[in-house]
């Protein structure tokens, strides 16, 4: 759980970083080039396989753990302890994870599937001037227009935005506990580091999730075009 979790935490950092290219507000030139690099270069492609493996490990292990742990109590308490000893999100990791998983399925079919298996329109960027040029222009290089797909998804369907926001909020609470918990499980905490790890986890979760939450909104409200 902890190792796969830390891998996924690193992945989110790259994902958010690359996606932040949309805020260059250049019609998707920088973003589409970055997405192209991730799709064309062999290193990200190998990492992508690793990513799917780690996702599967994390999901399957999480499910098994949740089922096993839920079976250990027997008869439940009449009066629950609630938040008197632990934070609600630390007890709801399974449910939060399931919400993220539902979001992930929609998210992959929205963007990952079309970008890998076709379904995106193309756009052309002049290799010398870095400007968007019409098809057939000399010096224009062809790129998948993932940016246009984002714009289409996030301006056409408000319910998709709602779903994304809910998914990312669930991810946020999952990360706030998951970040520090993974370090605890690996035994990498002591009195000296625990507050550093906790605070880093909170700052990380806030930045990553705020970035992801602003992306659909930026398109919807036309902050970027």
């Amino acid at each position: 759980m902890a190792l796969s979790g830390i891998f996924l935490i690193l992945f989110l950092l790259i994902h958010a970083g690359l996606n932040a290219c949309i805020w260059a507000n250049d019609g998707g030139v920088m973003f589409n080039k970055a997405a192209h690099f991730m799709g064309a270069n062999v290193v990200p492609r190998v990492l992508e396989i690793g990513l799917f493996v780690f996702f599967l490990i994390h999901i399957i292990q999480g499910l098994v753990l949740e089922i096993q742990n839920r079976s250990k109590r027997g008869i439940g308490y009449a009066v629950k302890m609630g938040n008197r000893g632990s934070a609600w999100n630390s007890r709801a990791m399974g449910i939060l994870g399931a919400l993220v998983l539902i979001f992930l399925a929609v998210h992959l079919s929205d963007f990952w599937y079309p970008s890998r298996f076709g379904g995106l329109t193309n756009m052309y960027i002049d290799t010398a001037t870095n400007q968007i040029v019409p098809a057939g222009t000399a010096g224009g290089k062809e790129y998948h227009d993932l940016y246009a797909e984002m714009q289409h998804q996030f301006t056409s369907y408000p319910w998709i935005i709602v779903l994304y926001e809910i998914g990312v909020i669930a991810l946020f609470w999952h990360l706030v506990h998951g970040f520090q918990s993974s370090f605890r499980t690996l035994g990498l905490t002591n009195h000296k580091y625990i507050s550093l790890i906790k605070n880093t986890g909170i700052v990380y979760s806030v930045i990553i999730c705020l970035a992801f939450m602003l992306m659909p909104l930026s398109f919807y409200f036309g902050w970027i075009r």
């Binding site: 753990l65 096993q68 250990k72 302890m81 000893g85 934070a87 630390s90 506990h177 499980t185 009195h191």
Partner: peptide, 20 residues
Amino acid sequence: GSCTNTGACEAVCPKEIEIT
């Protein structure tokens, strides 16, 4: 069961054993 680092144990321990 297994530990998921919720911290409830530390909160109720009468001898205040630390989760570290």
